[in-house]
C-alpha cells in the first residue's frame, strides 16, 4: 500500500530493543546500597558522550536506564553507578567481576561540552546526581586550559554518603578546581559546609556572565539551585539540567518518560533550562 513502510528484513536488522552482551570488569562499593560497575561490551559499542545513558539489563528481571559515569576518552570500560532501589538495580548491584550484563545504548542528549570552551563552568550536584557529571569533570580537567574557572558544588546527606569521595579529594589537590561540599546532616567532626547546596552558589567564584551551570540531582534540589544560579546572574540559557523520568524503551516509543512535549530519553535527559522551564514548574507534569 501507499506508505512509508520498508521491507521487513531491513528493519529487523537493526532491532533497537535487542541488547548486547557486556561483562563486568570491576565492581566498587561506593556507599551503602550504591555500587559502581565497570562494564566492557563484548562487541563494538557506540561511543557515548557525557550525560548520556545506557540501558542495563538482566534477562528475566528487567532493564533500567543508568547514566554513563565514565569519560569515553579514558578506555573501553563503561562505568555505571547504581543505587539498589528496585529489583533490577538490586540485582545489578550484586553483580561481580566476570558476570554478564546486557546493554543497550548509548541513548539521549548529553551535556553541552562543546559549548563550554572558554567559559567558567559551575557544576551543581546533589546525591547521586554527581554520577552523570563525573565524565564532565574528567573531560574538563583533562583539558583544563580550555576553560575558565571550574567550580564543583555538591550536596550530600551526610559525611558517609559523599559519592566518589576519593576522587573528589584528588581533584581538590589539583588546586585548579574550586570544590565545595555541603551536607544536610553532620557531626562536629565534619569540617566542611552544612546546609543546602544552593547556599554555596552566592559564595562560589565564577563570572555569571561567562559561566555555564550543569545541574543534576533530585528535581526539587535542581529547582532551588536554578533559582540561586539565576539570582547569581546566570541566564536561563546558560543553565543545563538532567531530568529523570520512567524510561522503559529509551528510544521514544514507550511513552513513559514524557515531560510536556519532550521524551526525556530521546530529547534529554540533559535539557537547557530555558527550554523546559515552563513545564518544570507544573506539578505532576
Amino acid at each position: 500500500m501507499v506508505g512509508i513502510a520498508e521491507p521487513a528484513a531491513a528493519a529487523a536488522a537493526e532491532d533497537p530493543m535487542l541488547p548486547r552482551r557486556g561483562r563486568v570488569r570491576a565492581r566498587k562499593r561506593e556507599l551503602d546500597g550504591v555500587v559502581t560497575l565497570e562494564i566492557v561490551p563484548e562487541a563494538e559499542f557506540s561511543a557515548a558522550s557525557a550525560g548520556q545513558f545506557n540501558m542495563l539489563g538482566l534477562p528475566g528481571i528487567g532493564e533500567i536506564p543508568i547514566s554513563l559515569s565514565s569519560d569515553p576518552a579514558q578506555g573501553d570500560g563503561l562505568v555505571h553507578t547504581v543505587r539498589a532501589v528496585g529489583p533490577v538495580s538490586a540485582a545489578l548491584s550484586r553483580l561481580t567481576p566476570g558476570d554478564t550484563v546486557w546493554l543497550r545504548g548509548p541513548f539521549g542528549v548529553g551535556w553541552p561540552l562543546a559549548e563550554l570552551a572558554g567559559r567558567d563552568v559551575v557544576v551543581v550536584s546533589g546525591g547521586l546526581g554527581l554520577a552523570p557529571l563525573r565524565p564532565v569533570l574528567h573531560r574538563l580537567l583533562a583539558e583544563r586550559t580550555r576553560y575558565g574557572q571550574i567550580v564543583l558544588l555538591h550536596g550530600a546527606r551526610s559525611p558517609t554518603e559523599i559519592l566518589y569521595r576519593r576522587e573528589i579529594a584528588a581533584w581538590r589537590r589539583r588546586l585548579d578546581i574550586d570544590i565545595a561540599i555541603t551536607l544536610d546532616h553532620a557531626g562536629a567532626d565534619w569540617r566542611g559546609h552544612v546546609g543546602v547546596v544552593t547556599h554555596l552558589i552566592p559564595q562560589a567564584a565564577f563570572d555569571p556572565h561567562h559561566a555555564t551551570a550543569l545541574v543534576c540531582g533530585p528535581e526539587v534540589m535542581m529547582r532551588f539551585a536554578i533559582a540561586a544560579l539565576g539570582a547569581a546572574g546566570l541566564a536561563a540559557s546558560a543553565i543545563f539540567l538532567s531530568l529523570e523520568r520512567n524510561m522503559q524503551c529509551a528510544i521514544g516509543l514507550c511513552g513513559h518518560c514524557q515531560f510536556g512535549p519532550f521524551f526525556v530519553c530521546r530529547d534529554g535527559p540533559v535539557f537547557r533550562y530555558d527550554k523546559v522551564a515552563p513545564w518544570l514548574s507544573v506539578k505532576e507534569i
Partner: peptide
C-alpha cells in the same frame, strides 16, 4: 527567608532515597 527555605529543603532529605 533563605535560611527557612534551606532548612525546609534539608528537611526533605532528598538525597536519602533519590539520586
Amino acid at each position: 527567608a533563605q535560611r527557612l527555605q534551606g532548612a525546609r529543603l534539608q528537611s526533605l532529605d532528598v538525597y536519602g532515597r533519590h539520586r
